[in-house]
Write a protein that binds this DNA or RNA. Structure first.
Lengths: 284, 284
DNA sequence: CACATGCTATAAGAAACACTGATGGACCCT
DNA sequence: AGGGTCCATCAGTGTTTCTTATAGCATGTG
């Protein structure tokens, strides 16, 4: 189970052929063949069907483990190297689109004012990617968001030991088209919207709602991107409803169940430095 | 970051010396010295102080990653091998002491009656160990328990992709000495017990209570074992209070906040076989 | 103070390993 | 049938990673 072989295995399945993987990795086809053979003989099982190349059942299981495993190795390396890193005056903050809301943007401004020499880069990416970037050092800190019960931590992908701090919570609104019959209400209960049309988005995954409320919440439209603006347009056009943090758009406040939009700051266990400073200043 | 080197590194820190680690791993001392040197040169940092041998700061960070990493590698291996395992007629179930309560013991009996050829081994161990054993194949299935809000999943240690199913929930009681002033009550609220003497145990970690209720819940006595009987004796002798599932001992029902004792079944994504059968039959 | 003891580092050779390059067989397409 | 593509295998080679042997450095002891 050498990670080297694991990486080759993953590349082969992605490339769909030994030869293509060889080229991609800078080896000869022969080397790839031997590496896969070594892995298979180590495990005592065939991992790939040949001609065409496709993972066997065992190969599929291994694939499921291989990605996270390689990620954690990179994360461990990055984390160790961080102990030796000089306190830099650059800092990259990875954030999901809804994480850096107005409150946090102001706190970030205050933090920068307090450390004027610090060059800050903000980068928007998806939830998983935020955690990955913080883990393997491409970002010093990250902000993720999600919907949860008040004071409950978010469920984050596990990519290694990492510190998380809740930095903001706010209420949710149900985003509706302006001419929707419910648009004039002062508040809405989720229970009354079980049979409505819903958008399936990363912020408001319907599976999560079904967990809370039981069946229903059938997706009227799947949206796979991360762009809030686009989602608002879809809602306005009547494709379906979605939940948003109150500050992100107009809508009717959600009054039950008590759910909040929560933002968490992620960072590696920090050596003293600008990232630690920032972490302290972003916390409420 | 070869796992081989990582294992050596961990062994050296545990053994406290290169020579001892060499003996333990069946290498010469020279080999160990070279392996550590290779790891240090790969990362570009000293990982160990010598004479006496102790991890440097970077070494400590690496140690924190190394254990989980090696565990996941073993887990991946076990999971892949499982796909090839013949449907055996032996099954090991790892369970925490409070997980296999009377309800589940009955369901287990029914499951065994339905599969009379199946040899079942039950093994009691700690919470982390249950997850580890299921991950790396020493047990086909596991039962863990914990205190949580109704229908909320438990927080489990992440050791790899694994399926969890809630199989039982029951109310909690506050265990008290029989002559305790509150022992006659019909119900108790946790808020009224903030300043009481509490036992710190693995089932009822006071940190968890503080998360829910704020400060307080100072430990009067730390108990680090897993034996319920012993804990009951400690409570009876007035060392402090603790929470227990209602079926595990006498006490006053906890009425607020609404918390339950929850049992979850863990198993690897299963190939059809006796473990899958058992999983189905243990679920409510 | 010389010396024994217990430890790690280094040097040199031997064994194991992992690559390249050449070749062969299976399959597919024309 | 023939050419092309692909993977497996073999032999050869350079590198890696051991073992053995020895040097060097602290610490404890007669």
């Amino acid at each position: 189970m050498d990670p080297h072989l694991l990486r080759t295995f993953v590349t082969v399945t992605e490339a769909g052929s030994f030869s293509a993987a060889a080229e991609q990795l800078g080896y000869t086809q022969s080397a790839i063949s031997q590496q896969i053979a070594a892995l298979e003989s180590d495990l005592g099982l065939p991992l790939l069907h040949r001609r065409p190349v496709a993972p066997t059942e065992a190969g599929l299981r291994l694939l499921e483990h291989a990605g996270p495993l390689l990620l954690r190795i990179r994360a461990a390396r990055a984390d160790v190297l961080r102990t030796a890193a000089l306190p830099a005056h650059r800092l990259t903050l990875a954030a999901t689109p809804l994480a850096l809301n107005s409150v946090l943007a102001l706190r970030l401004a205050a933090a920068r004012a307090a450390q004027p020499r610090l060059r800050v880069t903000v980068r928007t990416c998806g939830r998983d990617e935020v955690a990955r970037q913080v883990a393997d050092g491409r970002a010093e800190a990250g902000l993720t968001d999600g919907i949860t019960a008040p004071n409950d931590p978010l469920r984050l992908p596990e990519v290694g030991p990492m510190t998380t701090v809740g930095v903001a919570e706010e209420g949710l609104v149900v985003a509706l088209p302006v001419d929707h019959p419910l648009a004039g209400r002062a508040g809405l209960r989720l229970a009354d919207l079980v049979d409505a049309h819903w958008l399936q988005t990363t912020l408001c995954p319907l599976e999560r709602l079904r967990d809370l409320m039981g069946d229903g919440f059938r997706p009227a439209l799947d949206y796979t991107g991360e762009d809030v603006h686009t989602v608002l347009n879809l809602v306005a056009a009547g494709h379906g409803l979605t939940l948003l943090p109150a500050s992100a758009g107009h809508g009717v406040p959600l009054v039950a169940p008590r759910l909040v939009h929560r933002v968490e700051l992620l960072h590696a266990t920090l050596p003293p430095g600008p990232a630690a400073e920032l972490a302290a200043r972003l916390s409420p």
